[in-house]
Design a binder for these strands. Structure first.
Lengths: 296, 296
DNA sequence: AAGTTGTTTTTTATGGATAAAGTTCATACT
DNA sequence: AGTATGAACTTTATCCATAAAAAACAACTT
C-alpha cells in the first residue's frame, strides 16, 4: 500500500504552526493552506479532518479556529513522514558506506528488497536512479555490479568537477557589474564570515553554505548537465560526510577560509587569481575525500 | 508475463548459424553454445529442445547434428526478439521526436502505459532512466515534466561535449608512441578512407564509425563520467538521425573529411592543430543538429 | 579432474491491484 | 465573477504474483 507520508508530514507541519501561534484566529482557507504546504487540497482536507477529530481545531458554522493545545504526542513519528523511496535511499547508502561492500560485488534486487523490507520494484527504481552516479552498472537479466566507492571514483569525479567549476567561475567573473548575482555573492561572503566566528558550535552549518556557494557560481551561465553533475556531488558528499565525521570542524573551518579567498578572487575579476583559488579549494576537497577513502 | 525474447533471439541466431553452415557435423556442447551466445545454459537448452522438436537438429544417443533445412518461416518475427523495455524506449522516442510534444508538456505514466500497451511500472522505469538525459524532470506525486528537445538543450549538450572532447583529444595526443591506441587510430583512419570511396551506397555505416572514433579518443584516459556523457550523445544521435534523414549522405561525407583531418591532427601531436580540428568538427556537428531542430 | 547433461533453486522482468495523493467537476456563498 | 467547500474521478506509489532466465547443485562420462 502507498504510504501516507505526505499527509503525515503536512499534519505535523500544521500542528507546529498551531503550536507556535502562527495560526491565530480564523484559520486560512483550504486553498490558502494548500499553497503554503505545497500539497493538494485533498491532503489538506484530510489533515483538517483529523485535526478537528482530535479537537486541535474547532469547526463552527464553516469557520475554523484553533482548539486545544498541541501535545508532543500529537505528532506523527519522523520515520513515518518520509516515503519508502527515501528510506530505500538511506538504507542503501548506509549499506554501501558502512558495510564492507567490496568493489566487484554483485547486487541482488531480491536480497536488498528483503533486507530493506520493501518490494523489489522499489529497489530496482532506486538502483536505476542511482546508477547515474557511476558506482553501479546494470547487467541485463543478471543483476547489478557494484563498482565501488573507490579512489578511482573520487579522482574521476574531481577531474570533472574541476573542469566544470573553472568554467563556471570564469563565466561568473565575466558577468556585468550590474548582475544581481554579485549581490548574492556578497551576502554569501557575509554568511561565511559569520559562520567562521561561530565555528565552534555551528560547524555543521557549513555543508548548506557550501552547496549554496557552488550552485551560485553555476547560476551565471546555467547548463543542465553541470547542474546534474552537481547533484551527484551533493549527494555523495551529503552521505559521505554524514558517515565520516572525523575532523569535521577543522575541515570545515579550512574550507570556509578557502571559500573566502575564492570569493575575493571572483570579486577581483582577475582570471588567474580565480583559477588559483578555485583549484586550491578543490584540491583540498579532493584530498579530504581521498584521505577518508583510504581509511576504509 | 515476462517476455521470452532472450530465448527467441537465441533461437533465431542458432537457426541462422545452421542455415549458414556454421554448425556442421556434431554440434557444440551446451556450455560452448552458451558462451557463444551470451545467454544462460537454461536458455540454450530451451532452444535445443525446440530445434529438436522441429527436427531442425537430430539428437541420437547424446550427439546432436543438423537436421532438415531451415526455412524462412522457422524464424521468430523480429518484433518478438526485443524486450518490452526496449519497445518502450523506441515508442517513447518516436512519440517525442515525431509527435508535436511541446516543451512544458506534462507526461502521464498511466496514459503512456495505455498508449504503449505496457504496465505503468515499465513506463516509470524507462522515465527514470531517461531522465538523466536532461529532457525530463520528475515532480514527485505529480508526474513528469517534458522539458523539450530544444535549441537550449542542444547548446548545453555541445558545450559539455566540446569541453570533454578537447580534454580527451589532448590527453590522447600525449600518449607514448608505443601505445596500442595509435595502431587502433590508424585502423580507423583506413576505415574512414574506405568508407569515403563507397560513400554513395554505404553512407549509413558512418554512424557506427563515428561512435568508434569518439570512444577511442576517450580510451586514452578513461573517465566514467565522460563515458556516461558519451552514452547520452550516442543515444540522442541514434534516434535523432533515425528520424531525420535529410541530407544524410552529404552530412556524413563532410563529417568523414572532418574526422580525417582530426585524425591527422592527432597523429601530428600538435596541440594547436588538434584543438582546431576538434572544434571545427564539433561545430559542424552542432550546426547540423541545430538546423534540424529549427525545422521542427 | 574436467567437461556433459539433468534437475532444482533463485532472481529478474513484467503485469496487475489498490490506497494515497492529485486534479477536475459541481454546487453554494458572498 | 470569484472564492469556498464537497464529491467524483484520475494518477502515482507501492506491494504482490508469476513466467522466463540465470545460477547452483547433482549425477554421469570420459
Amino acid at each position: 500500500m502507498r504510504t501516507d507520508t505526505v499527509y503525515k508530514k503536512a499534519f505535523n507541519r500544521v500542528a507546529s504552526m498551531l503550536r507556535d501561534g502562527q495560526l491565530t484566529g480564523e484559520l486560512p482557507s483550504e486553498n490558502e493552506l494548500r499553497r503554503q504546504m505545497g500539497v493538494s487540497r485533498t491532503t489538506v482536507r484530510k489533515v483538517l479532518k483529523e485535526l478537528a477529530h482530535r479537537e486541535l481545531i474547532a469547526e463552527r458554522s464553516g469557520v475554523r479556529t484553533a482548539g486545544r493545545a498541541v501535545e508532543d504526542s500529537d505528532y506523527y513519528p519522523d520515520a513515518e513522514t518520509t516515503s519508502r523511496a527515501k528510506h530505500v535511499e538511506q538504507q542503501f547508502m548506509e549499506w554501501m558506506l558502512r558495510g564492507d561492500t567490496r568493489p566487484g560485488t554483485s547486487i541482488n534486487e531480491l536480497e536488498l528488497a528483503r533486507q530493506f523490507g520493501v518490494a523489489t520494484n522499489g529497489i530496482r527504481e532506486f538502483l536505476i536512479r542511482f546508477s547515474r552516479f557511476g558506482l553501479l552498472e546494470k547487467r541485463p537479466n543478471t543483476g547489478w555490479l557494484f563498482k565501488g566507492f573507490t579512489e578511482d571514483f573520487a579522482l574521476e569525479l574531481f577531474e570533472i568537477r574541476v573542469m566544470f567549476e573553472l568554467r563556471s567561475a570564469h563565466l561568473f567573473s565575466r558577468q556585468p557589474d550590474t548582475s544581481p548575482l554579485w549581490e548574492k555573492l556578497a551576502v554569501l561572503k557575509i554568511a561565511h564570515t559569520e559562520l567562521l566566528k561561530r565555528i565552534e558550535s555551528r560547524f555543521h552549518d557549513f555543508s548548506g553554505l557550501d552547496n549554496r556557494f557552488h550552485r551560485l557560481i553555476n547560476e551565471a551561465s546555467p547548463n543542465r548537465f553541470i547542474d546534474d553533475f552537481y547533484d551527484i556531488i551533493s549527494f555523495i558528499f551529503h552521505y559521505h560526510y554524514q558517515w565520516n565525521k572525523h575532523d569535521e570542524k577543522q575541515r570545515n573551518q579550512a574550507a570556509i577560509l578557502e571559500h573566502l579567498d575564492y570569493i575575493d578572487a571572483l570579486e577581483s575579476r582577475d582570471s588567474e587569481r580565480i583559477k588559483r583559488a578555485c583549484q586550491a579549494h578543490l584540491a583540498s576537497a579532493r584530498a579530504t575525500l581521498m584521505r577518508s577513502l583510504i581509511w576504509t
